Simulated scan of single mutants.
Amino acid sequence: MNCGVVTFPGSNCDRDCFHILKNVYGADTTRVWHKDTSLDGFDLVVLPGGFSYGDYLRAGSIARFSPIMKAVVEYADKGGLLWGICNGFQILVEAGLLPGALLDNRTQKYMCRYVHLKVENVDTPFTRACESGEVLNIPIAHAQGSYYADADTMKKLEDTGRIVFRYCDAQGNVTEEANPNGSLANIAGIVNDAGNVLGMMPHPERCADPVWPQIDGQKLFDSLFHKTGVRA
């Protein structure tokens, strides 16, 4: 499996993603600079977390115009696996590859802590190693993570099973108290219509190295490598 991790000015989770893909899962992994213009040959492309271009204007709004983004859109349109994590999710939304918007947290504060996620859809390449309704413990680190979409979009996401993760409590209850940032319907991650593009605010790459005490993030990586034989 050939993986590409895109680095924008201000990315700070690109090395984490690269480490997990290359050193933990043994995948052929390449760093892609934001001024590159091709994603040929990749089986998976990751837009990592961070603060691309300092989050000026809106998070992801400037990165959306980086030269690599034309190739990102073409790659997604051809069915390539594309994974946007945190700032990567924000960039995907700004680029129109996923619907909605990521707004300021309702606390108006940056948040960095572990949260519980309920897996709502296991029929995606990113969650097939999970069980329906499974609760994962994965960290968030964002200031603009409150997912918003209009009523028609929300209905479509609900009706078509495109909500992949929701914030919940440790028992899997989706409650207002378990919602860290004010996202509509406790949404933490969604996929596109085709199911090949995932955007999520939590950081599975920060809890996927087996030397760490918390490794729930491995469930997503295990899902991606399930059919490749890269990792047992």
Rank of each mutant, 00 (worst) to 15 (best):
M1A: 14
M1G: 11
N2F: 08
C3N: 12
V5A: 08
V5N: 06
V6A: 11
S11K: 09
C13A: 14
C13W: 00
F18G: 02
I20T: 06
L21M: 13
K22T: 02
G26L: 10
A27G: 10
W33A: 11
K35C: 12
D36T: 13
T37K: 14
T37F: 03
S38P: 08
L39M: 10
L39E: 01
F42Y: 15
F42H: 11
V46T: 07
V46G: 04
P48V: 01
P48G: 08
G49Y: 00
S52G: 13
G54T: 00
Y56F: 15
R58D: 00
G60D: 00
A63Q: 04
F65Q: 12
P67R: 04
M69T: 12
A71W: 01
E74V: 07
E74S: 15
E74P: 12
G84M: 07
I85D: 06
C86Y: 01
C86D: 02
N87M: 05
F89I: 05
Q90I: 04
L92R: 03
V93L: 04
V93K: 00
P99G: 03
P99C: 08
L102Q: 03
L102H: 04
L102I: 11
L103C: 13
R106L: 13
R106Q: 11
Q108N: 15
K109N: 11
K109G: 10
M111T: 15
M111F: 15
C112M: 05
C112T: 00
R113V: 01
H116T: 14
L117N: 07
L117E: 04
L117R: 05
K118H: 05
K118V: 05
V119P: 01
E120Y: 03
N121G: 06
D123W: 01
T124D: 07
P125Q: 06
T127N: 06
T127Q: 05
L136T: 06
I138N: 02
I138M: 05
P139L: 10
A143K: 13
Q144T: 14
G145Q: 01
S146M: 11
S146D: 12
Y147N: 08
Y147E: 05
Y148G: 02
D150C: 08
D150S: 06
D152T: 14
M154T: 14
K155P: 12
K155T: 12
T160C: 13
I163Q: 02
F165W: 06
R166L: 08
D169Y: 10
D169Q: 05
A170H: 11
V174F: 13
T175C: 04
E176K: 15
E176P: 02
E177N: 12
E177W: 00
P180V: 04
N181Q: 07
I190T: 09
N192A: 06
G195Y: 02
G195V: 07
V197W: 01
M201Q: 14
P202G: 07
P204G: 07
R206Y: 10
C207D: 07
P210H: 03
W212I: 00
P213L: 09
P213R: 00
I215D: 02
G217H: 06
D222S: 10
L224W: 13
L224I: 04
T228D: 03
T228K: 12
G229M: 12
A232H: 14
